[in-house]
Amino acid sequence: MILLENALLFIILAPFIGGLVAGIDRKLTARMQGRVGPPLLQPFYDVGKLLQKEQIVVTPSQHFYILSYLVFIVVSGALFFAGGDLLLVIFAFTLAHIFLVLGAYSSYSPYSFIGAERELIQIIAYEPMIILSAVGMYLVTKSFFVWEIMGSSLPLILYLPGVFLGFLMVLTIKLRKSPFDLSTSHHAHQEIVKGVTTEFSGPMLARVEIAHWYENVFLLGFIYLFFAWSPPVAILAIIIVYLLEILVDNTFSRATWKFTLKSSWIIAGMMGLVNLGVLYYLSAVVPV
């Protein structure tokens, strides 16, 4: 059962929500640093400005990759909100990121090249945990389809606490928050300039930014799934998680790739796997 209306709603609303969330994020970050911070709508101003700028490229093929990145992020998000197969959503999501990486590679620029390699490390750091999260949800609800997981009356979070913690860990990577903002950063880290996004400018950078908004909304939706049995709790959880991410973001400095990979594989993998193992064992003994 694919809910087309939801997909459409996502496509239309997600940029606004995503941009707003980014605005709140920046405001809060500024407050945590004792600053006033930019206006709430600053992210929209930024994208608006980028769209007005002249387009410069290193190679025209960048256009193709970045457009594909945006399109497939939207596709995977839309598929998620339409209630599609979670694994397919994850694979489409990976596909989108590969396009971002390829766009960075295509420019033959040292900084975006390093950014691309780091982005790849990030992908392999977070992807297993996201797949394990999907598997965890399957073990509880017996379905990979988002609409069925949403419809489940079981409090997933109680079955999947370890998986949830592991997911939070990789969420930091996905939201491009310190300490795991290896490939590009919203902060003033400049040792690899802007990493993957170094060679994208003007309207193209705006596309990357918008894709990031879509992506964030999708990720917040993923958190929702853990609490889907009760919408108020879910919304509260999303808010708390996001605040936590902002706090973490402002508390840590950038980690090395090795630390990122190891910690996310070991900690997240262990928590996720132990949780799944218990669940698996229990479901073999007493069907959930």
Binding site: Y45, D46, G48, K49
Partner: peptide, 8 residues
């Protein structure tokens, strides 16, 4: 326009 609201 937004141009002057977001000078990088």
């Amino acid at each position: 326009s937004t141009l002057s609201k977001s000078p990088w």
